[in-house]
Design a protein around this nucleic acid. Sequence first.
DNA 1: CCTTTCGTGCGATTTACATCA
DNA 2: TATGATGTAAATCGCACGAAA
Length: 178
Amino acid sequence: MNCEPPPAEAEEEIAGGASPQSIVSSVVIGDNRKSENGTDSPGEGIISDEEDGNEGTRKKLRLSKEQSAVLEETFRVHQALSPMHKAALAKRLSLRPRQVEVWFQNRRARTKLKQTELACDFLKRRCEKLTEENQRLLREVQQLRLFMSSPTQLYMGMAAPPTTLTDDQDCSFPLGAG
DNA sequence: CCTTTCGTGCGATTTACATCA
DNA sequence: TATGATGTAAATCGCACGAAA
Protein backbone atom coordinates (compact mmCIF):
# COMPACT_ATOMS: atom_id res chain seq x y z
CA MET A 1 0.00 0.00 0.00
CA ASN A 2 1.44 3.29 -0.95
CA CYS A 3 0.87 6.12 1.43
CA GLU A 4 2.57 9.12 0.00
CA PRO A 5 3.05 11.94 2.41
CA PRO A 6 0.76 14.86 1.78
CA PRO A 7 2.18 18.13 0.51
CA ALA A 8 2.86 20.65 3.21
CA GLU A 9 0.29 23.05 1.87
CA ALA A 10 -2.49 20.62 2.49
CA GLU A 11 -1.64 20.56 6.13
CA GLU A 12 -3.76 22.41 8.57
CA GLU A 13 -2.25 24.59 11.14
CA ILE A 14 -1.61 22.91 14.36
CA ALA A 15 -2.60 24.47 17.61
CA GLY A 16 0.18 26.82 18.56
CA GLY A 17 3.36 25.59 20.15
CA ALA A 18 2.33 23.56 23.10
CA SER A 19 5.37 22.47 24.95
CA PRO A 20 5.65 18.73 25.14
CA GLN A 21 6.62 19.01 28.76
CA SER A 22 3.26 20.40 29.72
CA ILE A 23 1.28 17.36 28.82
CA VAL A 24 -1.65 16.67 31.00
CA SER A 25 -1.15 13.09 31.93
CA SER A 26 -4.71 12.04 31.85
CA VAL A 27 -7.28 11.10 29.34
CA VAL A 28 -10.18 13.31 29.98
CA ILE A 29 -13.83 12.96 29.34
CA GLY A 30 -15.76 16.13 28.92
CA ASP A 31 -15.21 19.60 27.70
CA ASN A 32 -11.70 20.25 26.51
CA ARG A 33 -12.56 23.06 24.14
CA LYS A 34 -14.48 25.37 26.38
CA SER A 35 -11.68 25.66 28.87
CA GLU A 36 -9.85 28.46 27.14
CA ASN A 37 -7.60 29.08 30.08
CA GLY A 38 -5.96 25.77 29.41
CA THR A 39 -7.42 23.97 32.32
CA ASP A 40 -8.51 20.67 30.97
CA SER A 41 -11.42 19.45 32.89
CA PRO A 42 -10.15 16.13 34.17
CA GLY A 43 -13.03 13.80 33.97
CA GLU A 44 -12.34 10.19 34.67
CA GLY A 45 -8.59 10.00 34.88
CA ILE A 46 -6.02 7.73 33.39
CA ILE A 47 -7.12 4.85 31.25
CA SER A 48 -4.74 1.96 31.57
CA ASP A 49 -3.74 -0.23 28.69
CA GLU A 50 -5.94 -3.13 29.63
CA GLU A 51 -8.74 -1.00 30.92
CA ASP A 52 -10.90 -0.84 27.88
CA GLY A 53 -13.52 -0.67 30.48
CA ASN A 54 -16.51 -0.42 28.20
CA GLU A 55 -18.70 -3.06 29.64
CA GLY A 56 -21.88 -2.27 27.87
CA THR A 57 -21.37 1.31 26.79
CA ARG A 58 -18.06 2.44 25.46
CA LYS A 59 -16.90 5.84 26.56
CA LYS A 60 -15.47 8.20 24.05
CA LEU A 61 -12.39 9.91 25.33
CA ARG A 62 -11.66 13.40 24.17
CA LEU A 63 -7.99 14.15 23.97
CA SER A 64 -6.67 17.16 25.78
CA LYS A 65 -5.32 20.13 23.86
CA GLU A 66 -1.82 19.18 24.84
CA GLN A 67 -2.24 15.61 23.73
CA SER A 68 -3.63 16.72 20.41
CA ALA A 69 -0.84 19.23 19.96
CA VAL A 70 1.85 16.63 20.51
CA LEU A 71 0.13 14.19 18.19
CA GLU A 72 -0.14 16.89 15.53
CA GLU A 73 3.48 17.80 15.95
CA THR A 74 4.49 14.18 15.60
CA PHE A 75 2.27 13.76 12.59
CA ARG A 76 4.00 16.62 10.87
CA VAL A 77 7.20 14.64 11.04
CA HIS A 78 5.88 11.15 10.44
CA GLN A 79 2.51 10.32 8.96
CA ALA A 80 2.89 6.79 10.25
CA LEU A 81 4.53 5.39 13.36
CA SER A 82 6.69 2.40 13.99
CA PRO A 83 5.47 0.16 16.79
CA MET A 84 8.24 1.43 19.06
CA HIS A 85 7.54 5.03 18.29
CA LYS A 86 3.88 4.45 18.84
CA ALA A 87 4.45 2.85 22.21
CA ALA A 88 6.77 5.64 23.28
CA LEU A 89 4.33 8.29 22.21
CA ALA A 90 1.49 6.52 23.95
CA LYS A 91 3.48 6.34 27.14
CA ARG A 92 4.44 9.96 26.90
CA LEU A 93 0.84 11.01 26.45
CA SER A 94 -0.61 8.52 28.91
CA LEU A 95 -2.67 6.96 26.20
CA ARG A 96 -3.04 3.43 25.01
CA PRO A 97 -0.98 2.57 21.93
CA ARG A 98 -4.21 1.68 20.23
CA GLN A 99 -5.48 5.22 20.79
CA VAL A 100 -2.36 6.66 19.23
CA GLU A 101 -2.75 4.31 16.32
CA VAL A 102 -6.38 5.24 15.85
CA TRP A 103 -5.55 8.92 16.05
CA PHE A 104 -2.98 8.58 13.30
CA GLN A 105 -5.33 6.62 11.12
CA ASN A 106 -8.04 9.20 11.50
CA ARG A 107 -5.56 11.98 10.96
CA ARG A 108 -4.37 10.43 7.71
CA ALA A 109 -7.98 10.11 6.64
CA ARG A 110 -8.59 13.77 7.44
CA THR A 111 -5.54 14.82 5.49
CA LYS A 112 -6.60 12.79 2.53
CA LEU A 113 -10.09 14.21 2.64
CA LYS A 114 -8.73 17.72 2.75
CA GLN A 115 -6.44 17.02 -0.19
CA THR A 116 -9.34 15.60 -2.14
CA GLU A 117 -11.39 18.68 -1.42
CA LEU A 118 -8.55 20.92 -2.57
CA ALA A 119 -8.09 18.88 -5.72
CA CYS A 120 -11.80 19.04 -6.36
CA ASP A 121 -11.84 22.82 -6.00
CA PHE A 122 -8.88 23.13 -8.32
CA LEU A 123 -10.49 20.95 -10.97
CA LYS A 124 -13.72 22.87 -10.67
CA ARG A 125 -11.98 26.17 -11.30
CA ARG A 126 -10.01 24.67 -14.14
CA CYS A 127 -13.17 23.33 -15.69
CA GLU A 128 -14.83 26.72 -15.47
CA LYS A 129 -11.88 28.38 -17.15
CA LEU A 130 -11.80 25.82 -19.91
CA THR A 131 -15.50 26.18 -20.50
CA GLU A 132 -15.05 29.91 -20.73
CA GLU A 133 -12.15 29.51 -23.13
CA ASN A 134 -14.12 27.04 -25.18
CA GLN A 135 -17.00 29.47 -25.53
CA ARG A 136 -14.63 32.19 -26.60
CA LEU A 137 -12.98 29.99 -29.19
CA LEU A 138 -16.31 28.89 -30.57
CA ARG A 139 -17.31 32.50 -31.03
CA GLU A 140 -14.03 33.15 -32.76
CA VAL A 141 -14.46 30.22 -35.10
CA GLN A 142 -17.85 31.58 -35.98
CA GLN A 143 -16.34 34.94 -36.76
CA LEU A 144 -13.61 33.37 -38.85
CA ARG A 145 -16.11 31.39 -40.86
CA LEU A 146 -18.05 34.53 -41.59
CA PHE A 147 -14.87 36.29 -42.47
CA MET A 148 -13.83 33.53 -44.87
CA SER A 149 -17.20 33.45 -46.58
CA SER A 150 -17.23 37.17 -47.39
CA PRO A 151 -13.94 38.71 -46.40
CA THR A 152 -14.42 42.09 -48.06
CA GLN A 153 -17.87 42.77 -46.71
CA LEU A 154 -17.03 41.65 -43.26
CA TYR A 155 -13.65 43.23 -43.18
CA MET A 156 -15.23 46.59 -43.74
CA GLY A 157 -17.40 46.25 -40.73
CA MET A 158 -14.85 44.74 -38.40
CA ALA A 159 -12.47 46.63 -36.25
CA ALA A 160 -10.02 43.81 -36.69
CA PRO A 161 -10.07 40.19 -37.77
CA PRO A 162 -9.94 37.56 -35.05
CA THR A 163 -6.62 37.81 -33.33
CA THR A 164 -6.30 34.70 -31.29
CA LEU A 165 -4.30 32.78 -33.85
CA THR A 166 -1.22 34.91 -34.13
CA ASP A 167 2.24 34.11 -35.39
CA ASP A 168 3.60 33.03 -32.08
CA GLN A 169 0.96 30.43 -31.61
CA ASP A 170 1.28 27.02 -33.04
CA CYS A 171 -2.15 26.25 -34.37
CA SER A 172 -1.08 23.23 -36.29
CA PHE A 173 -2.62 19.94 -35.44
CA PRO A 174 -0.61 16.77 -35.51
CA LEU A 175 -2.08 14.92 -38.45
CA GLY A 176 0.20 11.99 -38.30
CA ALA A 177 2.36 11.42 -41.36
CA GLY A 178 2.69 14.65 -43.13
C1' DC B 1 6.43 -22.89 -3.69
C1' DC B 2 1.79 -22.93 -0.76
C1' DT B 3 -0.49 -21.97 3.64
C1' DT B 4 -1.10 -19.72 7.86
C1' DT B 5 -0.50 -16.15 11.10
C1' DC B 6 0.35 -11.55 12.41
C1' DG B 7 0.63 -6.69 12.07
C1' DT B 8 -0.82 -2.74 9.74
C1' DG B 9 -3.35 0.54 6.72
C1' DC B 10 -7.52 2.07 4.76
C1' DG B 11 -12.49 3.05 3.77
C1' DA B 12 -16.81 3.01 5.66
C1' DT B 13 -19.44 3.35 9.49
C1' DT B 14 -20.90 4.01 14.29
C1' DT B 15 -21.15 6.63 18.30
C1' DA B 16 -20.10 9.93 22.13
C1' DC B 17 -19.79 14.47 22.81
C1' DA B 18 -19.91 19.66 21.84
C1' DT B 19 -22.22 23.46 19.94
C1' DC B 20 -25.83 26.19 18.31
C1' DA B 21 -30.50 27.78 17.14
C1' DT C 1 -33.06 26.38 30.72
C1' DA C 2 -34.27 22.31 27.93
C1' DT C 3 -34.09 20.21 23.57
C1' DG C 4 -33.35 18.63 18.95
C1' DA C 5 -30.29 19.13 14.83
C1' DT C 6 -25.85 19.07 13.33
C1' DG C 7 -20.80 18.72 13.20
C1' DT C 8 -16.61 16.66 14.81
C1' DA C 9 -13.61 13.29 16.16
C1' DA C 10 -12.69 8.87 18.67
C1' DA C 11 -13.55 4.24 17.99
C1' DT C 12 -15.01 -0.05 15.54
C1' DC C 13 -15.48 -3.26 11.70
C1' DG C 14 -14.16 -5.66 7.80
C1' DC C 15 -11.15 -6.22 4.15
C1' DA C 16 -6.61 -6.25 1.72
C1' DC C 17 -1.83 -6.58 1.71
C1' DG C 18 2.99 -7.86 2.81
C1' DA C 19 6.30 -10.19 5.76
C1' DA C 20 7.72 -13.93 8.43
C1' DA C 21 7.34 -18.68 9.95
